[in-house]
């Protein structure tokens, strides 16, 4: 499996191909959302909601055999596309990998410029929430091993 850094490189070069055209970049992001696995309906509950000003995100996480498994959904196609990028990077990773790597691809793509500050803030809270899950899983793992 490629490292988090490798996948970030992949994503950056994919976006480079699109060039400067904002519209086609946004359409591309929306297309990416189609690759998301269907979100488990039983997880579509209030405690899994990350609320932005306009878009809504559901994020659920599981810890299976030392790896974090994320599933997510949104009510807007652009946000869905963004989530799919995060899941591509973070899914099936150990908590240490998630917590030990900074995400630089958003800045390198210039996502803030493409999406504006509101959507970027939403994305940042999404990343934060995924890292929180990783930290919680790590702590849980340590306490189990400690016993």
């Amino acid at each position: 499996m490629n490292s988090i850094l490798d996948i970030q490189e992949e994503i950056v070069s994919e976006f480079e191909i699109l060039g400067d055209d904002k519209e086609s970049t946004i359409f591309y992001i929306m297309e990416l959302g189609n690759s998301l696995d269907p979100f488990p309906e039983e997880e579509r509950k209030e405690e899994n909601v990350i609320k932005g000003c306009q878009s809504k995100v559901w994020l659920a996480a599981q810890f299976i055999e030392g790896k974090c498994h994320f599933s997510a959904d949104s009510n807007t196609d652009i946000t869905k596309g963004l989530i799919s990028l995060l899941i591509r990077i973070y899914n099936r990773r150990s908590p240490e990998e998630i917590l030990g790597n900074e995400l630089t691809f958003l800045q390198r793509i210039g996502m803030g410029n493409i999406l504006g500050s509101q959507r970027s803030n939403g994305l940042a809270s999404m990343i934060q929430q995924m890292k929180r899950y990783a930290l919680a899983f790590k702590t849980k793992q340590l306490s189990i091993h400690g016993n």
């Binding site: 904002k22 929306m30 306009q54 009510n75 196609d77 652009i78 504006g116």
Partner: peptide, 21 residues
Amino acid sequence: GMHPYDVGQLLDAKGIAVRTG
């Protein structure tokens, strides 16, 4: 089939400023 927020952002890419939400 489209969220207003997405419509707003795509129109912005065309230089059109509208409000959504």
